[in-house]
Design a protein around this nucleic acid. Structure first.
Lengths: 260, 260
DNA sequence: CCCCTAATTTGATCAATGTCATGGCGGCCA
DNA sequence: TGGCCGCCATGACATTGATCAAATTAGGGG
């Protein structure tokens, strides 16, 4: 492997400009477009979609049991969700720029999870109350929403396999590749990045002990697959990692979070 | 515990009359109703919904990559699905009467899994090609479909937690309770039942070794929680099992597979 | 009813990984 | 800049559960 690497730096101390995903790469794009994105400043559209709403680190998007009022798409930063009741097994998902939260709430109009910002984050809010104003575009909208849901459903099935059945090494390798690919889907740097969540979050998400996360990362590093310094992470040997990861049906590339 | 139990019998040798779920308990009910169930013999409805299609044991409903043409609801019997590629980690889901298959295929109009009958089974087929004939009921239909998908999405999130993070004992206890509750939702006997899948299927589904399934079941039996004889299973101590299972948000009752 | 095959049970062994304990580092605030 | 607190790394140890091997049982077809 090439040795032109810079050493992994501490994350910049200054206000880092957060990478923001373009609308075209966002899971809500099909919905926004239907909702009138062609004229993003029209009153109709602005009522339906609140763009770039800032969410401070640690702040909540929604909590379990709250009434569903909007779907969210992460624009920059990251969101973590934890399941309803017990904090016992903490983390049900990480949401990166372009990814959509809230779909599972549509069954009964109440959010199921707690959604919290892992860092300074901005999101777009799609106001479901305002759907009535869509008129004859509503059918198209519903169609797009359904595809989005079906897609997310399928993602779940796959993650599901991941967690149930595999070694810690496989889980972590898959997690890292999946993470990298999701960054890449947004046109962000994906071989060197900051993992915004704690080791404990990762451990809970993958269903392993947090010490094991540390150890396996270290081991990956010793094998030259990775460089890790705290939350900063660089993937040095993609193929090596891929060979450890669970074959994600044919390649290790995560599909983009938006359908079609 | 009461001792009025009959010993667990071998499943009857004679053609057992399969328990069939009523339409009202079926996940497709909202869709069928919209599609014109009020006159179930009308040509329109009969074109849209094929009822009680028999599927022989081992026969396939669909295979990965096939074009999505219909949603299925299990009417009696059981279906197992296995993920697309590798038979390596075999089982992604079991579907009991009233439960719906195929939703995850709507993202790109191709089935993702292989769906196979575990026993003599009958299903209802909802023909998606015929949706055009719905006319102005289509919006209602789409709405119901979306709720169904959201619900299933949420189910996935929960299973997900189950598999990732818990001991074999917890997984198996949760699996059994979940199974029992799904039977109960259909008004079927739910404390004594036949598990139609093999130990290997269960093991793959839960992400543990098949020998472990045997051992833990044995151990449950020794503790008086269960009686097991081959595939026949009787839950003797529900509360005991519940105390072992993962707290399935507040109670161990599985929600019915259909929304609202 | 018997036989054959596949499913299941059971036992022995051991590697993987969780748990507990401790020390160090880093980020954040005054 | 210094100190504090929470996150992280690492070591020792315990335990779970996978693997390998083999005996037993069940059930479907002739």
């Amino acid at each position: 492997m090439s040795l032109s690497y810079q050493p992994l730096m501490k994350p910049a101390r200054n206000k880092k400009k957060e990478q923001e995903v373009a609308c075209e790469g966002c899971g809500l794009f099909a919905l926004c477009r239907t909702a009138g994105m062609d004229s993003p400043n029209s009153p109709d559209f602005r009522r339906l979609v609140k763009r770039r709403v800032p969410v401070a680190k640690g702040e909540h998007l929604f909590r379990p049991g709250e009434k569903l009022d909007a779907l969210y798409a992460v624009k920059s930063g990251a969101i973590v969700t934890t399941p309803e009741e017990g904090h016992e097994h903490g983390v049900s998902g990480f949401y990166l720029p372009g990814e959509v939260l809230g779909l599972e709430a549509m069954a009964d109009n109440h959010y199921r999870h707690e959604a919290r910002a892992l860092t300074q984050t901005s999101v777009c809010r799609l106001e479901l109350d305002e759907l009535g104003t869509l008129g004859d575009r509503q059918a198209t909208f519903t169609q797009a929403l359904m595809q989005l849901m079906s897609h997310q459903l399928h993602q779940e099935y796959r993650l599901f396999q991941l967690l149930g059945t595999h070694s810690t090494e496989q889980r972590l390798a898959t997690f890292l590749l999946n993470y990298a690919n999701r960054l890449r889907n947004n046109g962000m740097p994906y071989l060197e990045f900051r993992l915004p969540m704690t080791r404990r979050d990762i451990a809970d998400y993958l269903g392993i002990a947090l010490e094991t996360v540390s150890r396996v990362l270290k081991q990956f590093q010793d094998r030259g697959l990775l460089e890790v310094r705290g939350k900063m992470t660089r993937i040095c040997n993609v193929d090596g990692l891929k060979s450890l990861a669970i074959r994600w049906h044919g390649d290790a590339t995560a599909p983009s979070p938006h359908p079609a």
